[in-house]
């Protein structure tokens, strides 16, 4: 690209007096040794720079990164496993707690039921006792009432017999009253 005309005497067979190329510069034989020489030097320098410094360094960086990634993935899997374990433990604890709550509830219900049954039974017993007492009292009252009626009836019968002018035969009256009351 640098094509400014070269002034003065020009000493190349491949360049004309204005500094322009004659034919293809690629085919100019007198430039070839120069290019080959500098190319070989360049390639040797690049080869040593790459093979001694750059490539081992990049290889080590890549290996280090690969190692880091592998470690991180392993650590992540370990953490994931721990998280899964923790979740399982949590689920198990939850299930246990639920079962325990159910058991406690059941037990409480059973206790309450037992207490209730006990209380009911006691109450029934008391009621039965009261009923029996009451019935006894009623029977007594009834019995005493009957006895009173008998006494009143005998007295009344005696009084009536006396009013009618008879002599009250105690035995006859009581027999008659008894018969009457049975009848």
């Amino acid at each position: 690209m640098a094509t400014e005309p070269i002034a003065g005497e020009f000493t190349s067979a491949c360049v004309d007096s204005h500094g322009s190329a004659i034919g293809m510069p690629q085919l100019c034989a007198e430039w070839i040794p120069n290019q080959v020489f500098w190319l070989v030097i360049t390639l040797v320098v690049i080869f040593f720079v790459l093979s001694r410094i750059a490539l081992p360094r990049i290889a080590s960086v890549l290996a280090e990164r690969q190692g880091t990634i592998t470690n991180d993935i392993a650590a992540a899997e370990e953490l994931k496993r721990q998280a899964a374990d923790a979740e399982a433990a949590y689920d198990k604890a939850l299930a246990d707690a639920r079962a325990e709550a159910q058991a406690i509830g059941q037990q409480t219900r059973d206790e309450i039921k037992a207490q209730l049954d006990e209380a009911t039974r006691e109450a029934d017993a008391q009621i039965a006792e009261k009923t029996a007492e009451s019935e006894a009292a009623i029977a007594e009252i009834r019995a005493s009432a009957l006895a009173n009626v008998e006494i009143v009836a005998k007295d009344t019968a005696e009084a009536i017999v006396a009013v009618l002018g008879g002599t009250a035969d105690q035995a006859a009256i009581s027999t008659a009253v008894d018969n009457r009351m049975k009848g």
């Binding site: 690209m1 640098a2 094509t3 070269i6 003065g8 005497e9 020009f10 000493t11 190349s12 491949c14 360049v15 500094g19 322009s20 190329a21 034919g23 293809m24 510069p25 690629q26 100019c28 007198e30 430039w31 040794p33 120069n34 290019q35």
Partner: peptide
Amino acid sequence: MDQFIVKPLFGDGAVG
């Protein structure tokens, strides 16, 4: 094709 000319950086001598 002038862009492909090989020329000395210092002076105008021949390209050795």
